[in-house]
Design a binder for these strands. Structure first.
Lengths: 203, 203
DNA sequence: TTATCAACCGTCCATTCGGTCAGTTGGCAA
DNA sequence: TTGCCAACTGACCGAATGGACGGTTGATAA
């Protein structure tokens, strides 16, 4: 569990933001305006505190980004590790990876959103991109294996298939917002239906 | 045709960049570092001219963005208009829209890339988002119609289906780079296969 | 009642930002 | 060879940027 402060054990000191609650606001704002498009002044205004108060919680703007993208990547790699330790057919493991990724994406939506928009301007961003590529490589290998096992169509390059598959999954961040009537399971079902058997009605 | 300088009719004045060649470099750099992450100083260095020379060609940084996203949107709407004037089943028109969008995406890759990353911080960006939403609405309507005609699976909400479909298409900007061995037709084929009939091998 | 501790404020700073402006350079047409 | 014109330079500006720092506030534990 990465989530903090479930049943808080009475906080010491003056009440206000702690790192966790500050990070939540920061990441939300970063997603609205873009990381580079958000100044620390903007953030302080949103928080209702001064800019210097932010630096009590975090040493730099970039550290906020690091905390955010790591939280997303940690979630993704938890699923990846789980899938790696699974046995069964590659196609089953692939579906598990997709469903797990959708779950992480929904559970940590703002963090994953930020991750998927990182460009590689700084060390922090480049490190994030490297970890992302590691994840992508695993997806490709899984698709290749599933194709070798005869469960994935052979008429599309596995590298292309895997990219399209996770392009579809990752595109969720562009529009999905938690609401009643469509929980994570429903969403993962929809994604898997479209991705695995297509949008066309078979008849 | 939007492309300039095919058989240039002898340019007047001192040779160097014109608006078109400058825009190409600018958009490429914006895509590498992000629009907000790219300063006019950065751009001037890349161009090999001074910052003030840029302002000879363009009145503001934002104007560069406007030119770029408009070029992407114009391409997309050309396809949309073509599809609107088509007759035939909704599913056929949907496929035409997908193939046309893939073609525009490839033909104007850097421009579309920039468009799809716009956040809505300024008037220019908000205007772009509005036009994008107009395009998306058309996609959804087409999917709804195709479902009513029995050609699209009824067990997924059309709004979700259409978003996943174009999430998949748009994800091309994240990895597709023109290369020998895979032209636009091949790419569109792969996208349509995965999107319409899924990645699973039917057997 | 008091010590402790985290949260917070006001002020300041060097740098970078997008942008302006008056003047210069160099190729081409007449 | 001269005059035009687009491309370009260099010096500059006010505002915004990320960040530093010493001091203050307010709730809780002892």
């Amino acid at each position: 569990m990465t989530s903090a402060s479930a049943a808080r054990p009475t906080r010491r000191g003056r009440p206000g933001y702690d790192l966790e609650s500050l990070l939540q606001v920061a990441v939300t704002l970063f997603n609205e305006r873009g990381y580079d498009g958000t100044s620390m002044e903007d953030l302080s205004r949103k928080l209702g505190i001064t800019k210097s108060a932010i630096y009590h919680h975090v040493p730099s703007k970039e550290e906020l980004l690091r905390l955010a993208v790591d939280r997303a990547l940690d979630g993704l790699f938890e699923i990846a590790d789980e899938v790696r330790s699974m046995d069964g057919s590659a196609i089953d493991r692939l579906e598990r990876l997709v469903r797990g990724s959708v779950a992480v994406l929904v559970d940590r939506l703002p963090f994953v959103t930020l991750l998927l928009r990182v460009r590689g301007n700084t060390k922090v961003e480049r490190a994030a991109l490297t970890r992302r590529r590691e994840f992508d490589r695993m997806v490709t290998e899984l698709v290749e294996q599933a194709e070798a096992e005869g469960d994935v169509r052979p008429d599309v390059d596995p590298a292309v298939t895997s990219r399209l598959l996770f392009g579809l999954v990752n595109s969720l961040i562009e529009w999905y917002r938690p609401r009643r009537g469509m929980d994570v399971g429903d969403l993962a079902d929809a994604v898997c239906k479209i991705a695995f058997t297509g949008l066309r009605q078979s008849r």
